[in-house]
């Protein structure tokens, strides 16, 4: 099964979802001078009364959102993934600790962000937010799934962090398939019994391409979009470990602490099988094209295929 044609950036899906929520007066949108980039500008254009500009001041934005939430509103606050990290302790103490429902979106995450260079390429956001009790952490792969998951957040009764990406990628979802998405449940895109590739974000496409090439070599892979890193769909992961006996994770994030770390923790505790992690190997990125960077950092489909073969050989 190949990915449906066309392309979309997950940040566009976030903006489209906000726009779809303009009819709900409880929804408020908070910006830190990056509305045009995160796509919260789409909501602002329709409903400025419920959009709060807070300037280049992320720490303040986190707690303003918390205050609005405790007064009955559903805040969606966004900035770049990397700048959200400046307010990490505010998220920790001001949002997650009192379990205040604020939905934080960090766009332009990962090295896929490209030419802006390493200062803009957050490769640790999923890891750090995952450590916080009460937090839900997500990283959808395309615009259609990002829209569906953002819409689902309106009824989600916990604080969340969602990373979106800057660049368009091939769509892995249609409106119909995205309608099946549930926060906390991995979505199976392809089924095979030899190896399981668990991916998120822009690497889902690479994972699907890897599965095609493995199939040509007689290796059948299951490919899962693990759009929710926390709470992790451990039931599915254990099932995949039992069925396939070898797992590869793929993410545009450090191999430390993100999807790969979360899956490895689950596997070690529940059902040990070989796990190979594709991601950024404990280094920072640099300026370059998205594909150039994926290639240089060994995060392309062929790298995932090789990792699958390594995992199978270790079985």
């Amino acid at each position: 099964m190949s990915a449906p044609s066309g392309g979309g950036a997950s940040r566009d899906g976030y903006g489209a979802a906000l726009l779809e929520m303009v009819g709900d007066d409880r929804v408020v949108v908070l910006e830190a001078d990056l509305g045009k980039s995160t796509k919260s500008c789409m909501f602002r254009a329709e409903k400025p009364s419920h959009t709060v500009s807070l300037g280049i001041a992320e720490q303040n934005m986190m707690l303003v959102a918390a205050g609005m939430s405790t007064s009955g509103y559903i805040p969606f606050a966004s900035t770049f993934a990397i700048f959200s990290e400046r307010g990490f302790e505010q998220v920790r103490n001001g949002i997650a600790r009192p379990n205040i429902v604020v939905h934080l979106c960090g766009s332009h995450g990962g090295i896929h962000t490209g030419t802006d260079g390493s200062s803009a390429q957050s490769i640790e956001d999923l890891a750090i937010y995952r450590t916080l009790p009460n937090m839900t952490v997500m990283h959808p792969c395309d615009d259609i799934s990002a829209k569906a998951l953002t819409l689902a957040l309106r009824h989600h009764e916990r604080p969340s962090y969602m990373r979106t990406a800057r660049n368009k990628v091939s769509r892995a979802y249609t409106e119909e398939s995205a309608a099946q998405l549930r926060i906390g449940k991995g979505h199976i895109h392809r089924t095979g019994d030899d190896v399981a590739i668990i991916a998120c974000g822009v690497l889902l496409n690479e994972a699907l391409d890897a599965a095609e090439s493995l199939s040509q070599q007689g290796i059948e892979a299951t490919v899962v979009d693990m759009h929710t890193i926390k709470p992790l769909d451990t039931e599915l992961i254990v099932d995949l470990a039992k069925r396939c006996g070898a797992i590869v994770t793929a993410e545009d994030h450090s191999i430390i602490g993100g999807l790969g770390g979360a899956v490895a923790e689950c596997i070690v505790s529940e059902y040990p099988v070989p796990v190979e992690r594709i991601g950024v190997q404990d280094r920072f990125g640099e300026s370059g094209g998205s594909d150039e960077l994926l290639e240089m950092l060994h995060m392309k489909a062929n790298d995932i295929s090789k990792a699958a073969q390594r995992a199978i050989s270790r079985r």
Partner: peptide
């Protein structure tokens, strides 16, 4: 952190 939280309460 409290001033920011108060701003959120006041805006609401």
């Amino acid at each position: 952190m409290g001033l920011s939280f108060g701003i959120g309460c006041a805006l609401a």
